[in-house]
Amino acid sequence: MTRLAVVFAAVFRRIGRETIDRVWRLGYASRFFLALLCRSGAVCARHRLLFREVWFSGVLSLIIILVSGLFVGLVLGLQGYEILQRYGSAQALGTMVALSLLRELGPVVAALLFASRAGSAITAEIGLMKTTEQLKAMDMMAVDPVARVVAPRFWGGVISMPLLAALFSAMGIFGGWLIGVVLIGVDDGAFWSSMQASVDFRHDVWNGLVKSFIFGAAVSLIAVFEGYDAEPTAEGVSHAITRTVVTSALAILALDFVLTSFMFRGVS
């Protein structure tokens, strides 16, 4: 009996400690975010730095985004046709593919891929710079590492993410068209016109872009924070990379729920 009590006490103590630790980190991350925003001025003045980061997180993620987008579109085309033709409305295939990509799959899947490709790379890069004392050296040379290293990477990610999501959706719709029109033989005109009739630019395309912008900010913030906060050892950096991917995925899905319920509620 007392043994059980001891175990329970230990479990509760552990939960309490973990919770306090999380809240502590959250506070630190918020302060870090504020400092990052305050010191972002240099990014505008030094657009070459920003350019390099758009290249690093955008261009290097291009292949995986395009290929995944195409495959997601192909699958949507197959599954969508299979379901829709049961109700005799195969012409609505275009609508279904476009709406699911623009509203949900485009922003969410592109952000998940972005987190595992670019986010982990950003964490690794900053974590390695910390481990090899490059950040300290920079600070010693009177150059603020947050302004010089962290801020450009954050804004590079924020800029790249909506562009990647747009490419992902476009590629997916192309994939759906390949399956639906080219392979199965749904009428080409009906495919596009039904799509165009029920997809609203402001409501669907624009909201999707807003979503991906917010996801991009969340993933980039998590990536730079985990890198900056990583323990300066090889093991610490690898833990930080794992945390980036896991936390990003959770943040994306949770944010998606919140944003969706704001954007698409009650309006058909």
Binding site: E125, L128, M129, T132, E133, Q134, K136, A137, M138, M140
Partner: peptide, 9 residues
């Protein structure tokens, strides 16, 4: 710095 801390990029 101890190991130089050169910027690797």
């Amino acid at each position: 710095f101890q190991f130089g801390a050169l910027f690797t990029d």
